[in-house]
Design a protein around this nucleic acid. Sequence first.
DNA 1: CCTCTGTTGCGAACAGCGTACCGCAATGGC
DNA 2: GCCATTGCGGTACGCTGTTCGCAACAGAGG
Lengths: 247, 247
Amino acid sequence: MTDPGKEPAPVLVWSKDRRTPRRQAPSVEQIVHTAIRIADAEGLSALSMRRVAADLGSGTASLYRYVASRDDLLDLMIDTVQGEAGPPPLSGDWRADLSEVARHVRATMLRHPWLGSELAGRPALGANSLRRYDVALTTATALTPDITLAANVVDTVLAYVFGTVARELADEQARRRSGLTEDQWRDSVAPYIRDVIASGAYPQFARLVLDAEDTGPDQRFDFGLACVLDGVAARVGGTGSAGLAHS
Amino acid sequence: MTDPGKEPAPVLVWSKDRRTPRRQAPSVEQIVHTAIRIADAEGLSALSMRRVAADLGSGTASLYRYVASRDDLLDLMIDTVQGEAGPPPLSGDWRADLSEVARHVRATMLRHPWLGSELAGRPALGANSLRRYDVALTTATALTPDITLAANVVDTVLAYVFGTVARELADEQARRRSGLTEDQWRDSVAPYIRDVIASGAYPQFARLVLDAEDTGPDQRFDFGLACVLDGVAARVGGTGSAGLAHS
DNA sequence: CCTCTGTTGCGAACAGCGTACCGCAATGGC
DNA sequence: GCCATTGCGGTACGCTGTTCGCAACAGAGG
């Protein structure tokens, strides 16, 4: 450690190595895949440009040759992930097909827990997102030829799916952010919930916590989806376009 | 402007003023309100601890006497905003009341565009959020006494609301992030959409863009909400507990 | 084979972030 | 009028996204 970093001192020619063996170009796909891997494994907060570059073995600034900004990278990650499972086969039965689309979306979000928070503030205009949307629209046109109505149906179903899965993910996300283990987290939330119940200000919530039989997230999802599809069927089903009648 | 910021140069004793007149304590409420104002006006990206402190006229480090971290501040902001409108009056008609709750939630999210992205990754356990949830549960118990089922109903409705409004906000959020004006944004999106349609790969989406009559976000919201409530009524309405029958 | 030129990698620097430490000034009690 | 206590906030650390400009290479032309 003889006087580190004070004198640049032109090194002897023969002692300077060829820096790095000139890594091959990372390419956009590699960057995006690496970023997705990091976000999946360690959460969005661990996803920095420096980190991606390090995992790729390249310099940080090099990434900007392929991706304009971190924001663009996130958009690319989202769209890549939307396309990772092929489109589901369509049976022609609109209800089964829309269910399948919904389950697909949920599976994608659960596989990539960062999707929920990231998708919230962005319009999904990527090629894969659009393909998914187009498939969903196709299934809905089996219910009604009116494209406006079909879009309303698809939007309703997808909104339900997104909202539900976002809440499913919220707990795990918060725990991860806090850095606690699952047990520590439970032990830190439990006393608060106990106080909330003991306060008596939230009687129904208390009843829910104490009495409810937890049916598990899958059943909850299926229940809500069934409700939404029932409602769509009731409101759009028979008629061609009387769907906008109110309440 | 004589050589600004180059020489610290110990100032003469009599020229050093009493620094700052010792501002009064900011208090948690003031901090949270200031933060909300900044986020509402300039977006989440403009919300930094330094910025909040500056707007409050206090030192940055002082905030940490009242708020443990930026993350805690965000949680406090969320819960404050959830409580800013009193609970809606309950009529006893579950459908009208649940609609009212849904409209309330939407109004809150639209008033604070940052709520969408922030709420996505957090469980809402604050006092005001819990009160809202409790009110929603109460309205649902008018539909069914089964608390588990009532919670499923409420979760379904709220998931739809959250998902829909999140998408409503997404466009505006993206535009804001890009820093473009509304016109610039439109001009930058339009050619892409044109290309997408011209590609022919998304026929239904193309049909939607070209043929659909835009009914406006309010009507879209009401349509989806009516669907969800229809579905809930169909699945829970008459029976007491047969709600989990599938598909 | 050499040189010249366009492309690409990336070190270093910059502004700004959240947060921890701790000296110092103002305040309350005597 | 003095001192002990309190708590504000300047400063600093390590991190972030992003830019600039040079170094190193590839391929073409002589």
